[in-house]
Structure formats: C-alpha cells, structure tokens
C-alpha cells in the first residue's frame, strides 16, 4: 500500500507531477479545441439552413466525411498529411529539410473538425426548435438580420443546444486520449509511461480512468451552472 502511495506522490520517486502535467495537457487541448469547433460548427449549421442548394451540399459533404471517419484515422490524416503537404510545399519553393507538425496543433485541428461536424447537427436541430414567430416578431420590431440573430435567436438557441453541446464536450474530452498516439504527453501517455516503468500497470491505468471520470463530473457541474444561468425563470417550452 505504502509502495503505491509512493508511486502516486509528487516527489522524485512518484509520478504525481508527471501525471498532473498530463492532465493539464488534456484539459488545455480540449479547451483549445472547443471554441474552434463551436464556431466552425455554427457556421456549418448556418450553411445547412441557408436555403441555397450548393452551400447546403458542401456543408453536408463536410459532416459526412468527418462523422464517417474514425477519429484516430482523422488524426493520422491530419498529422501525416499536413506534414507531407508542407514538405511538398517547401520543396516547391526550393527549400529542403524535414519539418515536424506540432502534435498539439494537429490534435486540435483533427478533434476540432470532428467536433464541428457533430455540433453543426446540434445547432441545426436547435434552430428548427425556434418557432418562426420569433423571426417575424423581430422583423416587426424592425431588427436587422444581425440584431435578430444576436438579441432574439442566439439566447434561445443556446438554451436549446446546451444539452447536446455538453454531450459533445464529454465526447471531446474522451477523444483527446487519442493524441497520445501521436506523441502528445496527455493523461494516457503519462500514466502509460508510469505504468511501464513502475510495472504497476493496473494501478496507473485505473488512475487514468479515474481522472477522466473526475473531469467528466467536474464538467457536468459547470454545465449545470451554465444551464441555470441561461434558463429564464417561469419559461416553458
């Protein structure tokens, strides 16, 4: 028992500090991906609802691809593909030499487009849940399109989309574990190193699972607070 506590301590004999650094990387990656994915997803949902055939088609192609590919494969495609593309580009402008893509950026891009593909569906169904009268009311008040969106539609949209988005956030948090494969020192990689060195594989992988659970519980607290914040008292749908 004492031996295990030593392994988990923060000192030079323990792995606590390394694993804490891994937690930080995981949380940073997820938080950095979130705004990128949300904005892209929102833009795609607007494209899907724009009423233009070609715009909708190109948005549908995006979601079909990134919801259909395994996340791990998307990550490899971005990581190796961007590397090869950049090398080709450098050769084209007459420069030679290897180039390394930052694993964090590759992870962010890959997880971000997957998140955006799913988020766009959440936004689309949230838009559909807003009655037409809201647009008509805003038009009657003389709001232009931007004001209608910002003052009338968005506040309601957030409320409707929040449960779906919180689900996607939890999925994103879990999917960050895949970046350990391209060498980013996240929770899985750090606990994996600790497991291999200390030979206490079960202890450390169980710890990794536990950390993800704690992160999920913490985020559901945050979402509860946001939900309470955006809901209108006495409002029913």
């Amino acid at each position: 028992m004492e031996r295990m506590l030593t392994f988990l301590s923060f000192g030079p004999d323990g792995w606590g500090d390394e694993i804490a650094a891994g937690v930080l990387i995981t949380v940073c990656l997820a938080l950095a991906t979130l705004p990128f994915g949300l904005l892209l997803g929102f833009a795609i949902s607007l494209a899907k609802l724009s009423g233009d055939r070609f715009l909708k088609l190109s948005a549908d192609i995006f979601t079909t691809i990134f919801r259909g590919l395994p996340e791990l494969l998307t990550l490899f495609l971005v990581y190796y593909g961007a590397q090869i593309a950049l090398q080709q580009f450098l050769r084209l402008i007459g420069q030679t030499g290897g180039i390394e893509i930052n694993a964090f950026v590759a992870g962010m891009a890959a997880l971000g487009v997957v998140f955006a593909a799913y988020a766009s569906e959440v936004f689309v169904s949230a838009f559909r849940a807003i009655p037409n009268g809201q647009y008509e009311g805003a038009a009657a008040l003389g709001f232009n399109r931007r004001h209608t969106m910002r003052l009338v539609i968005l506040p309601q949209l957030i409320r409707v989309a929040l449960p779906g988005l919180s689900n996607l956030w939890l999925i994103l948090l879990k999917d960050t574990s895949l970046v350990s494969v391209i060498g980013l020192a996240d929770i899985i990689r750090q606990t994996g190193i600790a497991a291999r060195v200390s030979k206490e594989t079960f202890l450390f992988y169980a710890l990794a699972c536990l950390i993800y659970l704690v992160l999920a519980i913490l985020s559901s607290f945050v979402f509860q607070r946001i939900e309470r914040r955006v809901e209108t008292p006495g409002m029913t749908r």
């Binding site: 895949l178 994996g192 497991a195 594989t201 079960f202 699972c209 659970l213």
Partner: peptide, 23 residues
Amino acid sequence: VYFFRGTPLLAQTFLIYYGLGSF
C-alpha cells in the same frame, strides 16, 4: 454505465489489456 460512458474507450482497453497483467 457511468464508468464506461465517462472514460475513453482507449483507457478501458489499456486497463484490460495491460492493466490486468498486474494480476
């Protein structure tokens, strides 16, 4: 349900394949 939906599939797979090697 909470455990298996709250943790990454990768971590679960590692826990079973590498982790149970401890026993």
